[in-house]
Amino acid sequence: MKLRIKITKDAGIRFISHLEYVRTIERAIRRAKLPVAYSEGFNPHMKFSLASALGVGVTSEAEFVEIELAEEIDLPSTMIKLAVNLPTGIRILAADLADTKADKLMAQAGGADYKVVVPCREDCNWQAAVDRFNEAESVLFQKPIPKGRGMTKEIEVKSFIDHLEAERAGDNLQLTFSCKITPTGSMKAAELLLVLRDSFELPLLVEKADILRTDLYAVDKDGKKMPLLKPEYIA
């Protein structure tokens, strides 16, 4: 049996790293005494994983944890036990139970939605820039290779993010968009901001961007969003 939980990474803890987030959940699971399956061997580790890594500084309303269980559990009471053992920056939104052999959520995730609020100079024609992005056939970006010592690889932005919505809110521009996750990779929301600033002359204060992942989901053959969890438990 696998327990799958949808949780948040709230603003207060946005700056903990992915590894720190994983360790934090692991310790909460231990405190809540969930009957988790462990790997064999001298250094047994808990069998659990996250569906998708989130960049440091990004908040999320859609993180997914997948935990292999050693015994059956009662979903509602287990979720209450876990909730009290999580730090304030992590809330449980939903959960379900699935067969151990079910596809890993990591493999199922096909896309993520984002909402970005970013300061943008007032005297700019932001609408025109956004229109140009939406109409462009191809937008290329030199994506840094992780630990690549400044080396980059060229990616096609439009294959991940086809369209974005924008509106002005005071000094800020609010952008909403969907970003595809493919077996070969994806693109970070922060990278899109760099593209808009550097290739579309949008005067964004990228360092001050407040990025929120609003959803993570599977995508079916027709490109339709499919929820990752069955609606078994809603907090």
Binding site: G12, I13, R14, F15, I16, S17, E20, T24, R27, A28, V56, G57, N85, L86, P87, T88, G89, L205, E207, K208, A209, D210
Partner: peptide, 19 residues
């Protein structure tokens, strides 16, 4: 502010909220 935290090493040193 976000821009400061995103430019320093180990920003979680400064944001509290630990269990």
């Amino acid at each position: 502010p976000i821009d400061i935290l995103s430019q320093v090493q180990k920003p979680a040193r400064y944001t509290g909220g630990e269990f």
